[in-house]
Amino acid sequence: MAVSGRSVVFVHGLWLHASSWRPWVEKFAAAGYSPVAPGWPGEAETVQGSRDNPDAIAGHGIDEVVEHYRAIIDTLETRPILIGHSFGGTLVEKMLGLNMGVAAVAIDAAPIKGVLPLPISSLRASFPVLKNPSNAGKAVSLTPEQFRYAFGNAIPEEESDELYQKWSIPAPGKPLFQAATANFNPHSETAVDTENSERGPLLLIMGGQDHTVPEAITKSTLKQYKHSTAVTELRGFADRGHSLTIDHGWVEVAAAGLEFLARHGL
């Protein structure tokens, strides 16, 4: 892709294919950016390809995925803006702390090390993976019903099922186990350099109806950055669930990210 403006790297989370960012890529390109949305290690080019080969997706942990994106970032002409959702939000927080990007937008980001709230809804959303320790080395798919609870609880059931059919893929279980044990592991891969005052600005976005990453998690994440003088902002969408990047209201969320970047000269 020819560089037409500042680079943007979109990072998806668990259970969504990289192509779910396509509307965002088009919107950011129209705004003058040069966006890309690479998949995780082992992810096929298509949703169906990923569903057909879950073993290729299995077993990848947080640090491995970060290094996968580092290799991609190293091919870009400019240090990019990082935008991530769910575990992709956790990844972009970690990458921003490592100065791999000039700014980041973390949307309904999974908890980093130090975040203590553990809402019941979050446990229920993660249960399809965490119920079996052997899932740490596997790729696990959600059923349409599990997807509706974890992603689509704030939208009509029909829309949730359509999004499931369009974008849902198996996800590696390893990152969820890493997050679940983060505060008991001194070397947890969910650790983020939240004290880095030299990093670029960070916007945390939360959905008020999110079952998977409730507001309490994002608010606790914000507190982890209290020792950094770098810009860290919080934006909430009270009526949104975890599907806020892919459902009918995604444009408003994308606009919030664009406004944040413009306000900070990016």
Rank of each mutant, 00 (worst) to 15 (best):
F184M: 12
E259N: 14
P144V: 07
I155R: 04
F10I: 03
D52P: 03
V231D: 00
G88A: 09
S20F: 03
L266N: 04
Y225D: 00
A29S: 14
L258I: 09
V11L: 08
Q165P: 04
P128G: 03
F87N: 14
E198D: 10
A256N: 14
R124P: 03
K174F: 02
A103S: 11
S122P: 00
P172L: 06
P186I: 01
L118S: 10
K219H: 15
S34M: 12
P23S: 03
D63H: 12
L116W: 09
T90Q: 13
V65P: 07
A104Q: 04
A30L: 09
P201M: 07
A103W: 02
G249S: 11
R235S: 12
A56Q: 12
G32Y: 05
S141P: 08
I112P: 03
P172R: 01
A106K: 13
P214W: 01
E215Q: 06
D63L: 15
P38R: 07
H227Q: 09
S86W: 09
D74A: 14
A103E: 00
G241A: 13
I112V: 11
D210N: 15
A2W: 10
M100F: 12
G236Q: 13
R199S: 00
S121E: 05
K223W: 02
I217R: 15
G257C: 15
D55L: 07
E259Q: 10
A238G: 07
S141D: 05
L204H: 08
